[in-house]
């Protein structure tokens, strides 16, 4: 499903060069639920951005669903993001001037679905997260947990094969965080591959596999045995400092 080999990402300024990822290797199989942990500045977000085709990389090979991502045009990357990847952001990233239905509809419009198809998908996605009755509400009229559920609905509406979650519970209290996590688990059980970046060790433990990123490299001995490790929870997350 996802395969990164020797990926390097360097941020350069006039004065410094920062190696955000170096010789980064990771393979994720279809249907997995992978939690990514690591200290601040370790490269988690850079990994997520590269995995989600939000930014490029300097060296290495990245295959997503069999497609070599290395030299894709901007349009092609946008199309893959739209069709294959669903994003869940820490800050929800809902558009405050659009109601819930319109927010969920955003990626579907870029996909070119007609109005009827969009309506069906929006209703189904909001129903899935339990907010079908509030589709005309504005994001500001919802709690943080509800907003994140809307963001999940938006990510699910396009039926992506791959869900990338960046600290999905980072802005939520523990009760709401648990609800969102349960929702993600349900989605994963339905067959969607999930990669979740988190600081929360308890949440990470609930994923099928944990990897830790330290200094831009994966500290998971089983990084190339994703298939074999499926269903297991690695102990590395426990060892990670997640303060």
């Amino acid at each position: 499903m996802l395969s990164m080999k020797n990926i390097s990402k360097v941020f350069k300024t006039d004065l410094v060069e920062t190696h955000a990822l170096r010789d980064f290797n990771l393979a994720v199989n279809e249907g997995e639920f992978v939690a990514v942990t690591g200290p601040s500045g370790s490269g988690k977000t850079t990994f997520l951005n590269i995995a989600g085709l939000l930014e490029g990389f300097n060296h290495g090979d990245y295959f997503l669903d069999g497609v070599n991502i290395s030299n894709l045009s901007d349009n092609k990357s946008a199309a893959i993001r739209n069709e294959k990847i669903g994003f869940i952001f820490q800050g929800f990233n809902l558009i405050s001037d659009l109601n819930l239905a319109e927010n969920v509809e955003v990626p579907l419009r870029y996909r070119g679905f007609n109005a009827k198809e969009r309506k069906v998908r929006v209703e189904r996605a909001l129903e899935q997260v339990g907010l079908a009755a509030r589709m005309k509400h504005l994001p500001t009229q919802l709690s943080g947990g509800q907003q994140q559920r809307v963001a999940i609905a938006r990510a699910l509406a396009g039926e992506p094969r791959f869900l990338l979650a960046d600290e999905p519970t980072g802005n939520l209290d523990s009760l709401m965080a648990r609800q969102v996590m349960e929702l993600l688990e349900d989605i994963n059980k339905a067959g969607t591959t999930i990669i979740m970046v988190t600081h929360d060790a308890d949440l990470a433990r609930r994923a099928q596999r944990n990897i830790q990123i330290v200094d831009g490299q994966v500290c998971d001995f089983s990084m190339y045995q994703a298939g074999e490790n499926r269903g297991k929870t690695q102990s590395i997350a426990d060892a990670a400092s997640v303060a």
Partner: peptide
């Protein structure tokens, strides 16, 4: 941020 989000969700330039 909204533009970045739209781009992330599949908007082309």
């Amino acid at each position: 941020k909204q533009i970045g989000t739209r781009r992330a969700l599949g908007a082309k330039k």
